[in-house]
Design a protein around this nucleic acid. Structure first.
Lengths: 213, 213
DNA sequence: ACCTGAACACCGTTCAAGT
DNA sequence: ACCTGAACACCGTTCAAGT
């Protein structure tokens, strides 16, 4: 008889209904450690103590598991952003600063999820992950509109601003995760804060006084 | 005897000294089509018409080939940016706009190279690719300093500004490549131009009048 | 309903052998 | 010097068979 990972709770034979979540948890750790490419369905199964064929009872595909990981990642991401926004308390600008910090913190704390969310082209095409991604973007959009309003500016440009803030945040997070910022003097948090501040502040000035350069 | 891809120039047996380049070219196409994960050493060898073992005469590893691809990508990238900058003619601001457009155009035209450069964590650790990446960043840094100077601002903050511009450009490029921007109304070029403009302009204002908010 | 065991095609990598 | 052929471990995936 083959050796089994029975030390993981003494399971034998069946996995008692939590195999799906256990596999996703294992995948999250593997992707966090070794990147999206380093994730292996067989290894995830081995970590959990089942055969390589067992995952196919819960996922149609290796990619299906990755998509599920991305879906959960976007959901957790949106929750974190909403918690950081905290209904815009005490004011929109302060809350917006927390939003940027929370974005970077999520990428740092959950590199497995973040890589699954953005490192994989296939993940987008899966049903559900698009909606979860939209929820995160909607949070940023809402925050941008609130900041514009706080300065008495029309919020017509809120969507453009949201896309800019999102792209910038994503760029900082990606460069930080990939190590490209390691050699730079300033740390990612400072770069994040300074850049978001530049983007938002200039957008506010343009919205308040559209005529001037 | 096995079937051979002799239609690729009628080669037989040996590859006459250009196998290394041919493999890199094949890898570039595969990564462009299917992403960094979709690249297979065996398939690249098959495309070129050699055995799966042949690449190991030119690369120590599958990762070594990816690193070489990233290295060449960064070199081509730096050249494209330098050409777009064109010595800052006719003025720094105009040339800077070209830089942003060139950044996005490179990611669009060479998704294989761009993915190899930034989609792979391992690529950074390889000797040479770091230097090539630094050359691209140095170009952006130089352009930022020139813009600051054009406005009569001290260029002490040029490095911070360069990192912000780089992160933003990278974010827009990544979101555009991964399809996350497809559902948005504005196109990536407009987002790129507007965001870079916001970042640079606000940085200039801060540098010119450091005291005011 | 949920998992195992065996099977197949494929990939990365090594190495002795060919030209 | 440069490549082939055979070999090994490993992975994704399928399917009949077990409980």
């Amino acid at each position: 008889m083959k050796q089994r990972n029975d030390f993981l709770g003494g399971r034998r034979g069946y996995h008692h209904g939590r195999l799906k979540d256990a596999l996703i948890e294992a995948a999250r750790n593997l992707v966090a450690e070794r990147g999206p490419a380093g994730f292996t369905l067989s290894e995830a199964a081995r970590m959990v103590g089942v055969t390589a064929a067992a995952p196919y009872r819960h996922f149609s595909d290796r990619n299906d598991l990755m998509s599920e990981l991305a879906r959960r990642g976007f959901a957790a991401f949106a929750s974190r952003l909403e918690a950081a926004w905290d209904n815009g308390q005490p004011d929109a600008v302060t809350a917006f600063r927390r939003l940027g910090a929370a974005y970077l913190a999520f990428a740092r704390d959950e590199p497995g999820l973040y890589n699954a969310m953005f490192g994989n082209v296939q993940a987008l095409n899966s049903p559900g992950s698009g909606a979860a991604a939209d929820r995160a973007l909607a949070m940023i959009h809402y925050a941008c509109a609130a900041v514009l309003r706080q300065y008495g500016a029309p919020d017509a440009s809120a969507r453009d601003l949201a896309l800019q803030v999102w792209a910038y945040s994503h760029g900082v997070a990606q460069l930080a995760l990939s190590g490209h910022l390691d050699s730079s003097a300033s740390d990612p948090s400072a770069i994040m804060a300074a850049g978001v501040s530049n983007i938002v502040e200039m957008a506010v000035r343009r919205a308040v006084a559209p005529g001037r350069p």
